[in-house]
Design a protein around this nucleic acid. Structure first.
Ligand SMILES: [Mn+2]
Ligand SMILES: [Mn+2]
Length: 538
DNA sequence: ACAACCTCTGAATAC
DNA sequence: GTAAATCATG
DNA sequence: GTATTCAGAGGTCATGATTTAC
């Protein structure tokens, strides 16, 4: 299928240029000497040379073979390379170790280039072949191509990091937007709205992001030691709430591994630096595990004083009873629970229950968190994308950067309060549908567009009484990070009788999670109709 | 929201 | 040989 | 039974070319 969208042949250079322009404009005072040197050299290069440089930095690297570069839109590629070399943006045939060279060849090529190395064969897997070649090779082979190595790679990474504020977005965001995938709202970007205020803050944030990647790799490879070692690389705790959150997430991950491997002192030290749940919970559990009931109780008390979330609060209440040897509170089921026998047709149990209710005359939707979050995303669209300082600092954000911090609600409190008043005054169905049409497809962290149809919106707005909807929306935005999940699987509507009903489906062996219980008790407290249905197979 | 992560399910474990 | 991964691309 | 921990699935642009694995 040919795209309706035409992308110009130099799209990647244009995109890179706009990244550089943006960074120069927003972060000029933070640039270091090497970054400035890079910018000067790059801007002085001819267009073909710039194209080649950008092509290379967008690929895997760090070394490239001249014979693998096929770019018809770059005229005279080899002279472009020579120009880059003169500008010190590219090294041609740099001195390379065998360990770096091996990246350039396929298995058959490696066998040919290093035929003098003993004990290698095509039977070996690539990593093993590479290992033997590296340890066995006595000299570099003569290769039938030039090797290119783009220079200033670290500086380019810094610039990209300044632009996006993270390492997981890159230049592809631009082309994806041009292709019509990943569209973003056009919120205003003011000059002094930025993630980093100082070079130190920038360096620490970059360090943090790099550590987060290493942590993930270590987790993936089940390399517990490597993960634990990262505790010694951590930067100081950042001041900005947004960076603080990143910091705490990473700290929690490392500390959790320390706990698992019973390095309790280190784990406690680390958790103490985190301001995100479940740091305090873990600390209480560690103290308890070591038999230090007093310390454990002290932590629980500190949670009770200033709970960071409902989850944490409930943990503290429950755990403190356990510590004092009191009986667990008999949990009176505050929500209605039913049983249902179905013939298993091996579909997901939620879908089977959905069909069951459809057969009983309900309009049933399998929504989980998408309905209320989606309605919030639409009803508060302009508040979400409001130009609060430092909330937006580059053009590819699907939410304000502080969405998951305690600041989110506080900083927009008046806006939210006014909006609630307006919404209470008249039916919102038409407005919200118009907004849906207008914004459909734009990235919004609160909205999963595929799960949010106009039919669903319409019936939900018509049949969920405003006081109910208001209560749910308030709880959601008040602490988005913790209240965004746990909504029941299904929502049912019966327009004839103006009824609606939340239904959480539990198959055999499944049970309510904490966040699901919290929403269900909340529903019960606000007379919002909800049921838990336990299914067994006939 | 940092492999890129999260959410939910469904079990296994210990008590 | 074919299936699965990895990479590059717009 | 209850509390807790853990592994797995599924979903994230889509498509074609190259390379690796079996
Ligand atoms: Mn569910
Ligand atoms: Mn369920």
């Amino acid at each position: 299928m040919t795209e309706a969208v035409e992308i110009p042949e130099d799209y990647y250079l244009t995109n890179f240029q706009s990244l550089l322009d943006f960074v120069t404009q927003q972060y000029d005072d933070l640039l270091n000497d090497d970054e400035r040197r890079f910018l000067r050299a790059f801007q002085s290069a001819s267009e073909p040379a710039q194209r080649l440089y950008v092509r290379l930095i967008c690929r895997k690297g760090p070394l490239f073979r001249s014979d693998k570069l096929k770019y018809p839109e770059i005229l005279e590629l080899t002279s472009a390379a020579r120009e880059l070399e003169k500008l010190a943006l590219l090294s041609i045939n740099p001195v390379t170790e065998v360990s770096e060279l091996v990246q350039l060849g396929t298995k058959p090529e490696l066998l040919k280039w290093f035929s003098s190395v003993k004990g290698i064969s095509s039977k070996l897997k690539r990593p093993e072949l590479v290992e033997r070649v590296v340890s066995g090779a006595t000299r570099s082979p003569t290769l039938p191509f030039d090797i290119y190595e783009p220079l200033f790679a670290a500086e380019v990474q810094n610039l990209q990091f300044m632009f996006f504020g993270n390492l997981h977005q890159d230049l592809t965001e631009f082309v994806l937007q041009d292709l019509g995938l990943n569209q973003f709202e056009r919120y205003p970007l003011v000059k002094d709205s930025r993630l980093f205020k100082t070079r130190e803050e920038l360096n620490d944030a970059l360090q943090l992001s790099q550590l987060a990647i290493l942590a993930y790799e270590a987790e993936f490879e089940k390399d517990s030691k490597a993960l634990c070692q990262l505790q010694y690389e951590l930067p100081d705790q950042p001041d900005s709430p947004i960076l603080k959150r990143r910091f705490s997430r990473l700290v929690n991950r490392i500390a959790r591994e320390l706990e698992r491997t019973e390095q309790f002192d280190e784990a406690l030290d680390l958790f103490a630096q985190s301001n995100l749940p479940p740091a305090l919970e873990r600390m209480a559990r560690i103290h308890h595990k070591r038999g230090d009931v007093k310390a454990s109780e002290a932590i629980c008390m500190s949670i009770l004083e200033k709970p960071a979330s409902d989850m944490e609060l409930e943990f503290a209440k429950r755990f403190i009873r356990k510590l004092r040897g009191e009986k667990a509170l008999r949990k009176q089921s505050r929500f209605s629970e039913k049983r249902l026998s179905l013939p298993d047709n091996s579909e997901r149990v939620e879908l089977q229950v959905q069909k069951h209710f459809q057969n009983e005359g309900w309009e049933a939707f399998y929504v989980e968190n998408t309905l209320i979050c989606g309605l919030a995303g639409l009803l508060f669209w302009d508040i979400l994308f409001n130009d609060i300082p430092d909330a937006f600092f580059h053009p590819f954000q699907s939410a304000p950067a502080d969405l998951s911090t305690p600041d989110f609600y506080r900083k927009r409190q008046t806006l939210f309060e006014n909006r609630f008043t307006e919404l209470g005054e008249s039916s919102v169905t038409q407005e919200i549908l118009a907004l849906y049409e207008q914004k459909q497809g734009l990235s919004n962290r609160l909205i999963y567009w595929l799960g949010l149809s106009k039919e669903l919106i319409t019936v939900a707005c018509e049949l969920i009484p405003w006081p109910h909807l208001k209560a749910m929306l308030e709880k959601l935005i008040f602490d988005f990070a913790h209240n965004r999940t746990g909504f029941p699987d299904l929502i049912l509507f019966k327009p004839e009788s103006q009824e609606y009903l939340w239904v959480e489906v539990k198959g055999p062996g499944d049970k309510l999670q904490e966040n699901q219980k919290r929403w269900l008790s909340f529903f019960s407290a606000h007379d919002i109709p909800a049921e838990v249905i336990y299914v067994d197979w006939q």
